[in-house]
């Protein structure tokens, strides 16, 4: 079976994917924020912040305007059928990114690291960013995350063992790393956050595993029982920290914890945290020759 890529139709479908990601929050995230709001004490700053956040989500959806002005780094995880050109897909996505910037769904966010010059259209070296995989289905899937800078700046990576945390090379050590990173982030990453955690890998793949967790539905269950119980324990304990929405104090510091693992070298044990702000903007498009679906 051959898959024919209609450039214009595909580019326009990607433009809609970007619009949805930037302006229309996924229902599972809205649900988690609503539950958090209901759980905070009446009259608290935490409740008031979460109410503003929910009002903002509705206003952004109504006006098709960005939920957050930091529309972030555009990260694409793309799966293509056999025989589809990665370069053709990249070209169409880059065109869609330029159009989305012109339509103010995205802020011009791509800056030359040496000269400081903003390219003005969200394109540049490794910008936007693509991960490609291949599958047997006659469809292209794009998972797009818009990852804001504030939350990216408080993301991090530890290596075990860690003497200052008295953390060893085991799951207890992983627990300590995550608690410490979220403590250090305070409200800076726009708490309450969604914590994508990657265990193992090398420095790069560890963070990729962490970031991939951010595409999971917030109310899903990890099929790995060890990781599932660690996710539950961390979520409960992170919310004991009392950092709260925006760091004003409160019961909700994390909305979810999602953990993935990769095999590691015997010599290395990395723990990576991809901290995602409450404005957890990610959408998935499944594009085939006869239909386009968004989730």
């Amino acid at each position: 079976m051959t898959f024919r890529l209609n450039h214009d139709r595909f580019r326009d479908a990607v433009l809609e994917l970007i619009r949805l990601a930037s302006t229309d929050m996924s229902p599972d995230v809205v649900k988690a924020i609503t539950m958090a709001r209901d759980n905070e004490d009446a009259g608290s700053a935490a409740k008031s912040v979460l109410n503003v956040i929910l009002q903002n989500i509705t206003a952004a959806q109504d006006g098709s305007t960005p939920i957050c002005q930091d529309t972030g780094t555009n990260i694409h995880y793309i799966t293509i059928p056999v025989g589809v050109s990665m370069r053709a897909v990249e070209k169409a996505v880059i065109e869609a990114t330029r159009l989305a910037t012109a339509k103010a769904y995205l802020r011009p966010n791509s800056v030359d690291s040496v000269t400081g010059k903003n390219s003005g259209d969200n394109t540049g070296i490794m910008s936007p960013y693509f991960h490609f995989e291949e599958w047997d289905k006659p469809a292209i899937e794009i998972k797009l995350a818009l990852k804001g800078g504030g939350s990216e700046n408080v993301s991090g990576q530890y290596k075990l063992p860690d003497a200052t945390l008295e953390a060893g090379r085991n799951m207890e050590g992983v627990y300590k790393c995550v608690v410490d990173m979220v403590f250090k982030a305070q409200g800076q990453g726009c708490a309450p956050g969604i914590m994508g955690v990657g265990i193992g890998g090398d420095r790069a793949t560890s963070m990729i595993v962490a970031k991939k967790q951010l595409f999971r539905k917030l109310d899903d269950l990890n099929p790995d029982p060890d990781l599932a119980s660690m996710e539950e324990r961390l979520l409960q304990d992170l919310n004991k920290l009392g950092i709260g929405p925006m760091g004003f104090g409160g019961k909700t510091t994390a909305l979810a914890v999602k953990i993935g693992k990769a095999h590691r070298l015997p010599a290395s044990f990395f723990v990576s945290l991809a901290y995602m702000c409450w404005a957890d903007r990610r959408r998935t498009m499944t594009y085939s020759e006869d239909e386009v679906r968004y989730d």
Partner: peptide, 13 residues
Amino acid sequence: LHAVGGAATILAQ
């Protein structure tokens, strides 16, 4: 003064 981070649409309004 602290504004609500991410509440970009309503602050723009």
